[in-house]
Design a protein around this nucleic acid. Structure first.
Lengths: 133, 133
DNA sequence: GTGGATGCAAACTCTTTGCACCTTG
DNA sequence: CAAGGTGCAAAGAGTTTGCATCCAC
């Protein structure tokens, strides 16, 4: 992450301008609008670099390929990925962040288990799909 | 799922006798104790058949390879996979079912979103690992 | 005996890596 | 011009599939 390249910028733009998390192939397709020669390997390498630099978040949902999301400026300034969860639309397959959390879940685990964190994924239909597209 | 074969039985035994969810390679290793010639392809085919027959549950955790769990007899009799969640131990990497649920989560989604179901994964240390192995 | 199940190898998806070439600073 | 980044192709995990052989019924 030392040099500024067109491919990195195209990638960041693609993530920033999308309202939802994108998969590596989706990122490739969108970023290729700006840099047609862009390669999937470069996408993966940049994603890793941006993730290590805490500029993007990896969104892993159960049984699904990884998606990535741009970190908002407030979160980047705070130097921490704000804790949040995701909504997966079973119609359009998009993933939306949810800025709410049901709270600590430690009481759900059996006695003796130390709960450190939790992941929550909601499934259903997003507002767009629910209203008949 | 029409014939009874040694490999299917070995696979079912491996899943039934384990206290936690197993990955396909783990299932292969355990079932090969009974049927040494057992092949990974057969494991995958049997897992698919058993899953379609509602005899096992697929456990997908975010960012992790699939695991499988035997359905308890009550659940099989009820013809439905009882709704539950999982605890993932970051020390021993085992996955334990949790027979508790925080309840409906519909209120966490933005207005207009229809929540149909949710997945919850707890992460931390299991009782065995927390007490110093 | 026959069709479903198995074993093996090849194919497929997703992701990572080696290496020569190109580009940024 | 030197180091880091890129593109391409090959290599890895995890999973699926085609096909000849095998074996449960």
């Amino acid at each position: 992450m030392e040099r500024h390249t067109r491919q990195r910028q195209a990638l960041i733009d693609a993530l920033t301008h999308s309202g939802h998390a994108l998969s590596p192939p989706e990122i490739l397709a969108r970023a290729q609008a700006a840099v047609p020669s862009l390669n999937l390997s470069t996408v993966y390498r940049q994603l890793k670099a941006l993730h290590d630099a805490r500029k993007i978040v990896r969104v892993d949902l159960p049984g699904q390929p990884a998606r990535f999301e741009a970190l908002c400026h407030e979160a980047q300034a705070a130097k921490r990925g704000h804790h949040h969860h995701y909504f997966h639309c079973s119609d359009c397959d998009r993933v939306y962040p949810i800025h709410a959390c049901p709270g600590r879940m430690a009481h759900l685990a059996p006695p003796g288990f130390e709960v450190q964190r939790h992941d929550l994924t909601l499934h259903g239909r997003c507002a767009g799909c629910a209203t008949g597209h």
